[in-house]
Nucleic acid binder design. Structure first.
Lengths: 336, 336
DNA sequence: CTGAAAGCGCTTACAG
DNA sequence: CTGAAAGCGCTTACAG
């Protein structure tokens, strides 16, 4: 009845059972062509009979390799990031890697902690969506670690690092132009926390105005948390205090969803009483009430491309700087 | 100009630089009280000067330990699962673990592949939200692997495994009762793919009817994919073909969001023209249009509890079967 | 208080 | 075609 504290089965057990040396077992496991089929068969049978499990850690340690990739996301509760992550993970798995993942929740401390932890774990590479306020020097530090790195979504200063993101300026510009060409002259910009992304998107907003030869009003920029709550509260403020405003470009879809809610609360409906544009084209945008007109930057593909860049960097560390910048496309549904 | 292919710095380099043996370095790193402060200081200085990085893999291999936990999620694009994951990860990090994570996307093959991979990676434990159609024997197999395991969200047969989920039957029952007590007599059940969760939720729906002494009509059960698209399409069907139906309990919030959209499309509004209840209380439910009345099972806490159970199991494999079953609470907003 | 030795489970030249 | 040996970077008794 007593449980023998069963030691782990290793290749030497398999070797003994199959009557070969452990080198041979190792060769069989990696399907070396040196081993004749009969030997291979014998070894495999012994392995399954004993319930042998390959110890990848030991193997990688000896071989100085790693098939794990670290990814650190700052806001998994934002569906945009979740979609990016899913694309990333899929590509990784399909390439034989596995993902160590952490959520920083916009905390610099957690980010630092997690990055160190992943380094100790010998990840083969790192994908990072940096927390707001991350010092641009971080990319240099990580490079000094000798770790292949791809930065996602948010740029980090002007350093020379691999990057996967979107053309934020152009995206917001075409969204604004769409509203402009529908005849709107007073268009609010809604939401966003200060950082590179907000800067780029705001630039696109202003560019659309200036290209149209229209002066824009700084007071129509409403910065707020890039969340549903932020969008909701700010939209309410616009409806109640700025009744002249009948159109808005949002920082992202999340903000737009909050705005949709606020409009509903006041008996209005986007697309009829107010023109509203989102940004990202997350999955939910197809099924909001009403469906959201937005700027598609294909989140899933963005993640996939980030993985592709990272994998390429791992394979060849000498590659020159890589960029994937998603080209934004207008997708018109009902909100504008 | 040529890059010396710099070998990794190890404790023996540090030992040499500090003029001690590698055993001493190892002791310093784990802050052993055996080492006097001066020695410790000298070693630490040498380590930082050399840019030493602890190789956790080697340490864990030698010590036969592991601080990584595997979690496999089947649908990360469902915000409910994302919220569960965030709660799980947070608890894990705070306890000094790190997370190997994979997304199965409801594919049995991927699930099998990922589970094996994680096993080879020597995870200390596993958290699994099983893909639909997973054989209940899986829990036995995993137990045979000697791997601490917690099943999340979906039960898997009636085996003896640790589980973190919610009281689905009670949840839908109170949602249905709420509608019943508002005077509705014909309430649709909307959405859900066949599996344990649907079964439990449907049971609650029927229980509410029978406790109220009202016969329910099997034709009012509308099964569909538990997605926004599913909810949207099915709700449209209800509006157009079953105009007598003016209330529905949804399989989950996602389905309810789709239904909200369908209602809007027909010029109706939940809470005024139709009574709609969700299930889960994901973050978005506060900010849908209109805000969703739903059943709160605290997704974030569910994840946290799953981690707690798993950690307890790891610490003590002999523990008897553990369960966390979230008690559902009605949260009434505007949709019903 | 610190060092020498063995070993975690594997892989990789190198013999034969 | 297969085996003996060394080593990946660490930890853990065991001496002294």
């Amino acid at each position: 009845m007593s449980k023998t504290p069963s030691r782990q089965i290793t290749i030497v057990d398999v070797a003994a059972a199959a009557g070969v040396s452990k080198s041979t077992v190792s060769l069989v496991l990696k399907e070396s062509s040196l081993i004749p089929p009969e030997t291979s068969k014998r070894v495999r049978e012994a392995a399954t009979k004993l319930g042998y499990v390959y110890n990848r850690r030991a193997g990688e340690m000896r071989g100085q390799s790693s098939n794990t990739i670290g990814v650190v996301i700052n806001d998994l509760l934002n569906p945009f990031h979740a979609e990016v992550l899913v694309g990333f993970e899929r590509k990784l798995m399909d390439s034989g890697y596995i993902m160590l993942m952490a959520h920083t929740d916009e905390s610099l401390d957690r980010q630092k902690q997690v990055l160190n932890n992943m380094r100790e774990h010998n990840v083969a590479g790192l994908a990072l969506c940096p927390v707001l306020g991350t010092p641009p020097s971080l990319t240099k530090d990580l490079k000094a670690w000798g770790l292949p790195l791809v930065i996602m979504i948010r740029t980090l200063g002007s350093g020379a690092y691999d990057f996967a993101g979107s053309d934020n300026e152009l995206g917001v510009k075409i969204a604004t132009q769409h509203l402009l060409s529908a005849g709107h002259r007073r268009i609010a910009f809604l939401g966003g926390r200060s950082g590179p992304v907000l800067e780029q998107r705001l630039k696109g907003y202003k560019a659309a105005y200036s290209e149209a030869g229209i002066d824009f009003d700084e007071r129509h920029v409403f910065v707020c948390n890039p969340t549903r709550a932020g969008g909701h509260d700010t939209m309410l403020e616009i409806i109640d205090k700025h009744p002249g405003l009948k159109a808005a470009v949002c920082y992202n879809d999340l903000v737009a969803f909050g705005a949709l809610q606020a409009l509903g609360e006041r008996g209005q409906r986007a697309g009829r009483d107010f023109a509203l544009m989102g940004f990202d084209n997350v999955l939910d945008a197809t099924h909001s009430n009403p469906p959201l007109s937005t700027v598609d930057i294909r989140p899933n593909e963005l993640g996939e491309q980030a993985a592709t860049l990272l994998l390429a960097r791992i394979k060849n560390p000498e590659l020159s700087k890589q960029r994937y910048v998603a080209e934004p496309h207008l997708v018109l549904r009902q909100s504008a």
